[in-house]
Amino acid sequence: MGTYILRRVLYSIPVLIAASMLIFFFVSAVGDPLAQVRAIPKVSQETIHHIIVRKHLDKPLIVQYGYWVENAVLHRFGTTLLGDNPIWPDLRLALSNTLQLVIVSEVVAVIFAILVGVYSAVRQYSAFDYAATTFSFVGFSTPVFWLALILQVLVTNIFLAYGIRIFYTSGFSTPGVTGLLPSILDRLQHLALPVITLAFVSIAQYSRYLRASMLEVINSDYVRTARAKGLLTRQVVMKHALRNALIPFATVVALDFGAYFGGVIVTESVFSIPGMGLYFIRALNAADLYPIMAWLIVTAVMVILFNLIADILYGILDPRIRYD
């Protein structure tokens, strides 16, 4: 198992290098790093020339890539072009906020998806199953940002009408809240709506997926064997069937992590959560390529990391996988 994990980690390295090249050349191809500087009339030609030399923008692209990698590794992505602010501290804070949001959403989504998926599969074509199917289709068809806006309108209007503050509709915490329990409660009140928004679509997808793989497993020979042994239905479903259905499901959930970083862009910008999404939108609006590239790299690392976790999970869940 140890060597298996090590091999997977080593395998991730070339993937990360390829991803970093893709990111650098893609961003360099679509954007001009100096566009924003040139747009400011006060900036003199000398200043621009100074920036070009300092950031090696006069060198061939492949050399620029080398400098950029060096900068990223040794100086934690360096500084922004305008204002020369260090990138990493802001990005790290954004990442930790986003991870809180994403992990809570994923946990909520997985719990609900398992409940809905298992019950739908066991009671195939029941009223519940049809309701769950309809819900899933609505989930596939709803724009995340619109759902976020509608939730905001609803909760705000409830607050305005009745004066009850159930959930906050923007921000990540209330300034001035102290103490462990009050601040946890405050955080949860801020997290609730973004989590509902993010989990909504995931529950729709995951529950469908789990339902399908449960159905396949439930009709398998070994589940029939389990029933023929005289096990309780609960044991047959929750142990023999679910344990097998979880193998592909765990992989799908882990791999879906990358999509979450797309999802947070929209959710965070609607709910003004100071995370990766908001950071990304700010960097885009400033048209500063360096934070954008740093963001893409951090995201790619997250995706690769969760690919790795998916592989390891797969190895743990399925004894048929050989490690050597």
Partner: peptide
């Protein structure tokens, strides 16, 4: 359920798929 596997037991056709692969 109390009869299945206790009073009446079965051996199935395909041993390759009739045992649960994860236990």
């Amino acid at each position: 359920r109390r009869i299945r596997g206790k009073e009446v037991a079965m051996v199935f056709q395909d041993p390759m798929t009739s045992l649960n692969p994860v236990f």
